[in-house]
Design a protein around this nucleic acid. Structure first.
Lengths: 191, 191
DNA sequence: GTCTATAGCGGGATAGAC
DNA sequence: GTCTATCCCGCTATAGAC
């Protein structure tokens, strides 16, 4: 039997899944507690207020994204595999009926405490700058082709993928495939 | 003094604004009632359950979009002004700290009753097909240039704009301007 | 059509035992 | 670190008077 992971992280795992499926205001400590097989007071022990939970949720997601992109950088992965790797991660989310934490939190941004809002901003910066670096590198290597500034194109790309995940919830994952195919075609250097 | 609009529509106006600012699960009948200067029982008289309200909200939004796009069609407006008109409508939303009803409902899709989900799907279809027709027309007239199918490009464009509105909440309306500028540049036929 | 009043539930949160 | 028990609040919703 595997060693039981510490409760604090398990709570975040469950809360993250609920956030991505339902949004922050549509799940409760009771939901987490029952999935974890404890009482809701146990959740409050680890995250006294739901606001604390929100901060921890976004912060962990951001750290994880950070590590993920740093690893890709270390491996010196080529532009297209880097791009496809992100695409695949999103596809996995969609198939579990989830959307990106960033997209959900962006939609719910106005209802979040300032502390959470700052975390969301940092997360957004990080995702956009990942794509910005990737696009720049790909352009230099002749792998990607696009108009204008890499930073601007990166912002558009991120918006597109966030929107695509949300639209895929509404009309099914076919929507996501269409969007991604179009993205690939538009990034490919023309013959 | 202006004639008092009927309560039923005023409720929808207020609920729509709250939905766009905060999301469906982050406003209550009390919020609506106090803004309207009545008691919450009055809201329940017009919309017995919150689910009824959700259906009415999306349905009205869809009818309004329908009329809006039909009027543009009747006027035989040129492709670029049609495009810019939509862009401006979205800009106005952002400046009021709101996002599109479609974007919010797409994020919250999983928590909605089936009846509401069907309305959201119809709304999404309608928006995408508006852009699909527009892009096709613009391409035929040599005003727009893009790769692949107009219907596919329309889907991408809609995702982009929904994402841009959400990201503008997080980092300010500058984000929206960057995205829109990029979109314009990419649609313009190359010299 | 709007009111007062209230039912009934579920939410976030805390105290204190174990 | 988790439990039981409980508080208090806000929410959706309804009944019945006006």
């Amino acid at each position: 039997m595997a060693v039981k992971r510490d409760t604090k992280n398990q709570i975040l795992d469950i809360a993250e899944a609920l956030l991505q499926e339902r949004g922050f205001h549509a799940f409760s400590y009771q939901h987490i507690a029952s999935k974890l097989g404890v009482k809701n007071a146990a959740i409050h022990y680890h995250y006294p207020s739901k606001n604390d939970l929100a901060v921890a949720l976004v912060a962990r997601y951001r750290r994880r994204f950070s590590r993920w992109s740093e690893n890709l950088a270390k491996e010196n992965a080529a532009p297209w595999p880097c791009f496809e790797s992100y695409i695949e991660t999103c596809r996995y989310l969609i198939e579990s009926n989830k959307i990106c934490v960033l997209g959900m939190m962006a939609a719910e941004f106005n209802t979040m405490a300032e502390e959470v809002q700052r975390e969301i901003q940092l997360l957004q910066d990080e995702v956009v700058s990942y794509f910005s670096d990737l696009l720049k590198r790909g352009q230099e290597q002749g792998e990607f082709s696009f108009l204008g500034d890499a930073a601007h194109k990166a912002l558009v790309l991120t918006c597109q993928l966030q929107g695509a995940m949300q639209f895929a919830q509404v009309k099914g994952s076919g929507v996501y495939n269409v969007v991604v195919d179009q993205l690939r075609a538009e990034l490919k250097p023309q013959a």
